[in-house]
Simulated scan of single mutants.
Amino acid sequence: MNKPIIILGNGGHASVLTEILLLQNRKILGFTAPEEQTNSYDLKYLGTDVIFENYNPLEVELVLGLGTVGISNVRQSLYKKLKNQGYTFVICVHPRAIIASTATLDEGTQIMAGAVVQPHVQIGENTIINTGAIIEHDCIIGAHVHVAPGTTLSGNIQIGDCTHIGTGAKIIQGITIGSHSLIGAGAVVVNNISSNQKVIGIPAKSHRI
């Protein structure tokens, strides 16, 4: 049975997730934020993240509504903190996303409208596959990754943990990208990328972060 949901955050990414949850008729208790705020969906402000000390982790589920625009440890740190407290994060999939039956989605995965996830794809925990992104067959995507809107990953690509793939980037088949790297918006990646790299251009060239 579905449990009531608390959304962490109140920005644009949280709004997109709220839409998905409402389409699924999920009960939303409210949201957290660093200070009291209004909400465009009239959701209740519950307080800061301190409130989670007062809830039973077995009675609610969480949705992490903080997006990323580059490499950031905030999502990962908050996710791990609340997991250590016993909380569970919802897998959010927009009804207009296409997910192959053989794809696997770990806890907290978020897949937005128009995204396509093809057969035998593996997506790690707390990863965002944003609007209109295409993940072709047999890709392996790590944890805490953000694949931004309009991105195309061809087949058999591996993406390391905590990497950000910028809007509209394209990665050819068979490429491996390390962890904690940033692929710039519109980049075309044709060579393997090691960890802790910033990659920009067509064809993309890397620079150590």
Rank of each mutant, 00 (worst) to 15 (best):
K3R: 14
I6G: 07
I7A: 05
I7D: 06
L8A: 01
G9W: 08
N10I: 00
S15H: 12
V16G: 10
V16F: 09
L17M: 14
L17K: 07
T18G: 03
I20N: 04
L21Y: 02
L21M: 03
L21P: 02
L23M: 14
N25G: 05
R26D: 10
L29H: 04
F31Q: 12
E35M: 08
E36H: 09
S40R: 14
D42G: 15
D42F: 05
K44G: 05
K44T: 15
G47D: 11
F52N: 00
E53I: 00
Y55E: 02
L58Y: 05
L62N: 05
L62M: 07
S72N: 15
Q76E: 14
V90W: 02
I91K: 11
V93S: 08
P95Q: 04
P95K: 07
A97N: 06
I98L: 12
I99K: 06
A100F: 01
T104S: 09
E107C: 01
G114H: 08
V117I: 15
H120W: 08
V121T: 12
Q122K: 11
N126M: 04
N126P: 01
T127G: 01
T131M: 12
G132D: 05
A133V: 10
A133S: 15
I135P: 05
E136H: 09
E136C: 08
D138F: 06
I141A: 03
G142T: 05
H144W: 07
H146A: 10
S154R: 06
N156V: 00
I157G: 11
Q158T: 14
D161H: 02
D161V: 00
C162I: 02
C162L: 09
T163E: 08
H164A: 06
G166N: 08
A169D: 11
K170G: 12
Q173I: 04
G174F: 10
I175W: 13
H180Q: 13
S181E: 09
A185N: 08
G186P: 05
A187N: 10
V188T: 15
V189C: 10
V189H: 11
S194Q: 11
K198S: 13
V199I: 15
I200W: 07
I202V: 15
P203H: 07
P203Y: 05
R208K: 14
I209Y: 10
